[in-house]
Write a protein that binds this DNA or RNA. Structure first.
Lengths: 138, 138
DNA sequence: AACCAAATGCAAACAATTCTCATTACGATT
DNA sequence: AATCGTAATGAGAATTGTTTGCATTTGGTT
């Protein structure tokens, strides 16, 4: 049960929150939009409103349970925080998402921020391309 | 006149397009949202509709005249394509935007994409932080 | 079991962007 | 320079993604 994690994060363990945590935790997809989460809830027969989904996702992000990404195309995508920080590489044809972590890049980013007088708080790096599978088919 | 660039890009040289090109070209701001552009048009007394602004910006992007960024917070920001490709570092307090180019990072990105079987088409890197000026004040 | 603040659901409100369609303006052709 | 077909435009309605207001419900504490 996610009840434990929720309390640890200082959040009341309500039904919607537990359900949403379960959905994000079930490693089917990893990257879900608010709407994806909402649909998943409906499919599993849970009667949760869209507003709640958005509110809960925002709280989870603030609590550090999940992170929000802005992939090309606009709307937010959420991902459970587990394991190391990582960046993303996306296929522009099929939407596939892979993750990577590169120490060289991480270090250069900090260095660059420092050089320019910035106290770096965050960063986002997305690489777009055509994945191996999509390159093959015609 | 931007008329020349427009034709070179295979676009009819219409008044709205010329105006928008001028606005983006006037190095006052460099990073403008669609609404910024729309407001600038209104202020200079030009009667251009929002729909046209969005259409034209999308065409300019497709034609490679400008590029679109998704800075944190959501909506698109556009920037004239001139000079080298570069990435961005943004102040989370005042919204200041600086640009940078780092060969090390660029190369690593290509390498990473290749390693994972992707044919890289594009990438976006944003560093967020607090700029020097904002660090000083309180 | 009873209570209160916090959380939820619903619907309305919003913001950014896109679409529809009747009107207008390029620019190619005479 | 006048004509004409097509592509571009403007106005506003329509979508999409997200947020808000408020009456009702629920979790957790007593």
């Amino acid at each position: 049960m996610g009840s434990r994690e929720l309390k640890k994060a200082g959040l009341k363990a309500t039904l919607p929150r537990i359900k949403i945590l379960e959905i994000l935790g079930s490693n089917d997809v990893r990257h879900m939009s608010a709407e994806d989460v909402y649909k998943a809830l409906l499919e599993s027969g849970d009667d949760v409103g869209v507003a709640t989904v958005y509110r809960v996702l925002t709280q989870f992000e603030a609590a550090g349970l999940i992170s929000r990404h802005h992939f090309e195309g606009g709307h937010s995508v959420f991902e459970m925080n587990e394991g190391e920080h990582h960046d993303h590489i996306l296929c522009v044809k099929c939407g596939r998402v892979d993750e990577f972590l590169d120490e060289t890049i991480e270090k250069r980013q900090h260095a660059l921020a420092k050089e320019r007088g910035y106290a770096m708080t965050d960063h986002s790096l997305y690489i777009y391309g055509v994945c191996a599978a999509c390159q093959k088919e015609q």
